[in-house]
Design a protein around this nucleic acid. Structure first.
Lengths: 231, 231
DNA sequence: CTAACTTAGTTGAAGATTTACACTAAGACT
DNA sequence: AGTCTTAGTGTAAATCTTCAACTAAGTTAG
């Protein structure tokens, strides 16, 4: 058929993941140290080749990489973008399909030993991690952060970073932390009620030395809900 | 290095375009007839292999395909999404990076003979073109339509489909056509003024047998402007 | 046992924005 | 000069946002 059946003309294709969770310092991203060339020893976003004999589709490839690095099977997962150019990998013309994954605090707590040595959480500072990353991964991370920060304004994205059950005050704190500004309590609660993505866990309350707070869970732990207006 | 240096393990990668313009019947998409196998003779979205010796990056590959099919060099161009799976192409595991392009009415008018026989505009009806398309292109088109319709709600996207100069009433008509509902004139004009992406062409008026209308142009013909609120 | 303290959750007044619709403006046509 | 058509503006009522105070419900200290 065409000359492009000759495999030398095929670009290289990898799936890379920007996996986020909440750390005590705020948003954090999972990084791995590269074992082999190129960029051996450098920090990078977790990723890997597409296994054409094993992965049914791109999403499956992303899930496989996620499972390998974190043990988590069903987080929030969304395709961010695809970059491809002649120069981004010294081995040749290469494509990276980038996914964003959000891990709930429960996932992180359960899996932190399984990940030992393989990968490490780094707190986000400004536009990145204050660390130079392999390939164009610093740029990919910047894009991922842009997408996340944008979606905090008009989606329930922060709900996917909390544990399975949380209070409205806790949810508001995560919004405030990601947005970098304080929100009005009554307006916030009104938005959440309108967006209709939470359900109260009957009878379950967060208890402390004050009035107990109703606990909530996401109605759907995989899907993002868009608000009618910005928060 | 790894077994994946063996090219048999590389997926196939193409760049495909959903190129839109306005036709008398509303939104239209550019389709081509496939010349060779697979799906020979079927309608498909224009696309092609990545030329690793010619294309600097994915965006350049998309621009090359666009130029080949339409002659247009600098339209609005945005990456939509990437699909990849074992089954979407009978030749093997394949990836398609899909771009959306919007052609101004001027571009379409100028290039309609250059395109003769190569490609054809089809009006959008509902979720597609009422025609079965090669590969998973019907699904890709559906995704592209979803993105476009969503962005009409909160961006100046329709401005990229009009000729270089247009009136506010004409712009409002395009919004209404794409949204499928009527808009309030004064609210519409207020949004457009706030979004600040138009400039009046001093002294140029659309004349008919009624009050003349001020003509406007986009301040930037390549970039999308987001509104603060939905339209 | 009760008062103080803390955070949860609600309420409401003042101000800002949106909506719906009517009004004025400026040309061509008769 | 009057009518018609579309351009463009104005406005009152309804809605939404903001800001802050208020009530609620528990624990803790005395």
């Amino acid at each position: 058929m065409t000359t492009h059946d000759n495999d030398a003309y095929k670009p290289i294709a990898t799936v890379d993941l920007a996996i986020f969770s909440l750390s005590p310092e705020g948003l954090a991203v999972l990084l791995v140290r590269r074992a082999g060339a190129p960029f051996s020893g450098d920090w990078a976003l977790p990723g890997g080749w597409i296994h054409i004999d094993e992965d049914a589709d791109l999403q499956a490839a992303a899930r496989r990489v996620l499972k390998e690095k974190t043990g988590v099977e069903t987080p929030y997962l969304e395709q961010l973008q695809t970059t491809g150019s002649a120069g981004r990998d010294p081995r040749g013309w290469s494509i990276s399909i980038v996914y964003i994954a959000l891990l709930s605090a429960d996932d992180v707590a359960q899996r932190q030993d399984a990940m030992a040595g393989q990968a490490e959480w780094r707190a986000i500072e400004g536009e990145g991690v204050g660390l130079s990353l392999a390939f164009d991964h610093a740029s990919l991370l910047r894009e991922a952060l842009g997408r996340i920060r944008s979606k905090v304004e008009y989606t329930n994205l922060p709900g996917h970073l909390l544990p399975a059950r949380f209070t409205l005050s806790e949810l508001q704190s995560v919004y405030e932390s990601l947005l970098g500004r304080k929100l009005d309590k009554s307006a916030f609660r009104k938005r959440m009620a309108e967006a209709d993505f939470l359900e109260p866990v009957e009878g379950e309350m967060r208890r402390a030395s004050n009035r107990p707070a109703q606990m909530f869970r996401l109605k759907d732990a995989q899907s993002l809900v868009l608000f009618d207006r910005r928060i």
